[in-house]
């Protein structure tokens, strides 16, 4: 299923602006992280050294999936996210300062420095991660089940990469969500590679929305990393879920501009691939669309400035925060 141009023009300018500002914020956040991440890792690259020690999986280029669905979500809706979570977190409204502090391993972080960038948890906006591929899908099913049991119209969204759609947890979860008619949306971000392995070498179907037939649920496919098409597919899916009409799988063709992790030599893909992808940049295209719709360029500039300021403040907050005391490692095992 793809969206027609006619449908595309039905999206309000306000929603387009919201998506644009979020995408700019996500992109700027990740661009800053590219810089910060290299601090202390020179001259010899060492993942475990520097301001942000540990692995780093950035979402640059994958903004449309997060904002297209984020535009329809309420604070009470659940999002689960995998090891590449920054865009999902930002679009869900996770506290940016505490998120950044967590990525820096600081005591003011969402998890007081225990988790790092793959393990962001913000109960305020019902956002959770797991560093284990596919582990978050059943949790989203559980959240959808809880919403239904409580009689609420809340929905649950599980973001996964295309690689996770081959894990048992994907199939077990979708069968249950379909069987129990739960308000679940699984968003498969197809960025073409599971680390190094291309989708065609790991997946028996060309797109995972086709697997919806196996569970008797709705499927939608969004091509060209298009945020507006994602918005429209998500609108249908969220509406279906809120109205008790069951789960949806949305697969979006998206692009990973950077390596699987920062420092990835990317020997598995053609060097010419990424510059080609960047020419199709969804942020540029959405900005053109907004200008076409007579949005004042000054207003767009202000949105960009606002987003950047928020990000800059979050990074400064993280830098200014302290590391946790070593003995804090012993805390939070059981309730105290």
């Amino acid at each position: 299923m793809t969206q027609s141009n006619e449908n595309q023009s039905s999206v309000s300018v306000e929603k387009l602006k919201w998506m644009y500002e979020q995408m700019v914020k996500i992109r700027y956040y990740e661009d800053q992280m590219v810089e910060v991440y290299t601090e202390g890792k020179k001259p010899v690259f060492n993942i475990g050294a520097g301001t942000v020690p540990g692995e780093m999986h950035l979402s640059t280029g994958q903004e449309p999936a997060a904002v297209g669905i984020g535009a329809h979500l309420k604070k009470e809706d659940t999002v689960t996210s995998p090891h590449r979570p920054h865009h999902h977190a930002i679009a869900k409204g996770v506290d940016l300062k505490r998120m950044t502090a967590e990525i820096f391993g600081k005591e003011t972080g969402l998890g007081k420095g225990k988790g790092g960038h793959m393990h962001l948890f913000d109960p305020e906006v019902k956002f959770a991660c797991s560093g284990i591929v596919a582990a978050g899908i059943p949790h989203a099913v559980g959240a959808a089940m809880a919403a239904k049991m409580k009689g609420k119209d809340w929905v649950a969204v599980a973001f996964i990469g295309e690689g996770a759609a081959n894990a048992g947890a994907f199939h077990e979860s979708l069968n249950l969500a379909a069987l129990w008619n739960l308000p679940l949306i699984v968003v498969v971000e197809d960025n073409a590679y599971g680390i190094s392995v291309p989708k065609k070498s790991s997946t028996s179907v060309d797109s995972n929305d086709k697997r919806a037939d196996a569970y008797g649920i709705a499927g939608a496919y969004v091509k060209d990393n298009d945020p507006i098409a994602m918005y429209l597919a998500a609108e249908e899916a969220v509406s279906r879920a809120r109205n008790g009409q069951g789960p949806t799988i949305i697969e979006i063709e998206t692009y990973r501009y950077l390596g699987h992790f920062q420092g990835d030599p990317e020997l598995y893909r053609d060097k010419a691939e990424v510059p080609g992808l960047r020419e199709l940049d969804p942020i540029v295209k959405l900005k053109e669309k907004l200008i076409e719709k007579s949005t004042d360029e000054k207003e767009l500039d202000e949105m960009e400035e606002r987003a950047k300021q928020e990000v800059d403040e979050a990074y400064q907050f993280a830098r200014d925060s302290n590391f946790p005391a070593p003995e804090a490692a012993l805390e939070d095992v059981f309730t105290s």
């Binding site: 020690p53 540990g54 391993g105 600081k106 005591e107 998890g111 007081k112 420095g113 225990k114 988790g115 790092g116 393990h119 590391f323 946790p324 005391a325 070593p326 003995e327 804090a328 490692a329 012993l330 095992v333």
Partner: peptide, 17 residues
Amino acid sequence: GPDVPAMPYAPTMEKFF
């Protein structure tokens, strides 16, 4: 190692573990 569920991330706590 201490009896906690997993090794924490922050350099201070990892060193402690």
